[in-house]
Simulated scan of single mutants.
Amino acid sequence: MTREELERRVTLVRQELEEAANGRYPVPKLIAVTKTHSAEEILPLAEMGITEIGENRVQELLTKLPALRDSFRIHLIGRLQRNKVKQIVGDVCMIQSVDSEPLAMEIHNRALAAGKRMPVLVEISPAGEEQKGGVPFEETEAFLKKIAPLEGLEIRGLMAVMPLTEDREYLDGLFARTRELFDRLKDRNLSGAAMEELSMGMSGDYQLAAAHGATMVRVGSAIFGPRG
């Protein structure tokens, strides 16, 4: 892809996010999802004002880290195995996929050992898809209360991955339900569990996410184009 095409795609996504938010909510932060893309493909984004990227796999992230760490804040957005936490806790700005107590405890321990608190989001499961992980809606508050005392964590909000479907009405309902949960938890003002960030929306549905008040969207193929 040429630089001009990449810039055109980034500009279009930003315009669509602004239109979807429509003044009702702030325009969400655009996090470019960079899995499967080389550092050479990713680096031009920095000159287009994209400062944060999302990587799904620890091993891939580690290979690209030396080239990217000075240009971007990096989010770990994929499912994370406990034995991989120690490899990334000092290099990512946020872990967006915390969905179990053992994982939360491992991040807590590794962060404390590194002398830091790790910003995290709790991943929830809007559609109850077991293969995607995520805390069930009805268990989210209880889960937050269990992990909130862990001093190595800085809980910043929620993350959600919506199902792959063409049913826009169904998706709209899931986004609305997720926003309602976020607002309800924010109103509860749970100690140690700030509700500042709501990360939801990907290339197929980021406009719906913006319309329902996402604070971050994670966009890959709409920026880089589909893989051959």
Rank of each mutant, 00 (worst) to 15 (best):
A193F: 06
L198V: 10
T178C: 11
M200Y: 04
L174Y: 08
V135G: 10
E154R: 14
I147M: 07
P149C: 02
V161D: 00
E129V: 11
L153D: 00
P163A: 06
M202N: 04
M162I: 09
L181Q: 10
A160W: 11
L174K: 08
F175A: 11
L174D: 07
P149F: 09
L150R: 04
P136Y: 01
A194G: 02
Q131P: 00
Y170R: 14
R184A: 12
Q207D: 00
G152D: 09
E139H: 14
R177V: 00
Q207R: 15
R177C: 01
L190G: 03
V135K: 07
E166S: 14
L144M: 10
G213K: 09
E196G: 01
E180C: 03
I147Y: 05
P136I: 00
L185E: 00
L150H: 07
D172W: 00
D187G: 07
R184E: 12
E141P: 05
Y170S: 08
K132F: 13
R156I: 08
Q207G: 01
A127E: 13
L208N: 12
L144K: 11
D183T: 11
K186A: 11
R177K: 15
D205I: 03
G213A: 07
V161Q: 02
P163W: 09
M202Y: 05
T165W: 11
L150W: 10
G134M: 12
I147G: 05
D187F: 09
P136D: 06
Q207P: 00
S203Q: 08
M162Q: 14
G213Y: 10
L174G: 05
Q131R: 14
P149E: 04
F182Q: 03
L158M: 08
S203T: 14
G157L: 12
E129G: 06
R168M: 08
P149D: 04
T178W: 02
A211K: 13
E139D: 15
L174W: 06
G204W: 04
D205G: 04
L171H: 07
A160Q: 11
R177S: 15
I155W: 04
K186R: 15
G213W: 10
D172G: 14
A211V: 04
I155L: 10
S199F: 09
E139W: 02
E141F: 05
M202G: 08
K132S: 12
A142W: 05
E129L: 09
L181A: 07
A127P: 08
S203C: 05
M159R: 04
G152W: 09
F143C: 02
N189V: 01
M159Y: 01
K186I: 00
L198K: 12
D205K: 05
T140S: 07
E141Y: 07
I147P: 03
N189S: 06
L153W: 05
F175N: 12
M202L: 05
A142K: 14
L144Y: 08
A127N: 11
G152Y: 03
G134C: 13
V161M: 13
A194D: 15
